[in-house]
Amino acid sequence: MSTETVEKKKSGEGEPLFSKKNRRLLSDPLNDNNPITVQVLGICSALAITVQLKPAVVMALSVVFVMGAGNVIISLLRNLIPSRVRIIVMLTVVASLVILVDQVLKAYMFDVSKQLSVFIGLIITNCIIMGRFEAFAMGNGTWKSFLDGIGNAAGYGVILILVSIFREFFGAGSLWGHKLIPDDWYMQNGGFYHDNGMMLLPPMALISVALIIWVQRAYNRKLIEEN
């Protein structure tokens, strides 16, 4: 990763827009360098809003937007920000973007916005965003930063959606609010099935993520930690 000033145009001339290196920026965070299961960033919101699929998807899209736009803005400003006050500048940029998302959600998807309650506001302090600003956007060109932002937000979104599918299906027998398990399978209707109410409770989110980590690391053994 070159830290020198690489403007969008220049990097476009030097290498194709989707060169191998640039594609890796997008694909790495999906598996080898996943923000949640490997970098351990952005766990807070990932666990709290995964009870149902719909809020999780909305949250993932919001983060993709904030992350992509924020990374572009920070990388455009990176030579102007004095390093002493960079944290406050970053927080201001994120906070403005999040206010935008919050107002749009309140206007067009009021019920989802109520469900997400404080967690939209907490995108501001989502560690992925600050982490990527600090680690990538401060030292790289605009196009690269944009790809990195989208890639990391997508890696976050994938885990979010997996966990919420798992929890909503086993916890409530539905997906996106639609019942998938037939009514007459249930105990109270003389069937054999019972929803696992435990899945809806907060601690099971942690355990679901732990299971995802287990599966991922069993296949991708270079991620295994010492202890």
Binding site: M204, V209, I213, R217, I224, E226
Partner: peptide, 24 residues
């Protein structure tokens, strides 16, 4: 003796989950 893929992050998640159940 934690299973290798669970070492570190994974087992910490599980412990936190169990503590969460206790706090419930």
């Amino acid at each position: 003796n934690v299973p290798a893929p669970m070492r570190g992050l994974g087992i910490t998640f599980v412990i936190t989950g169990l503590m969460g159940i206790a706090f419930m």
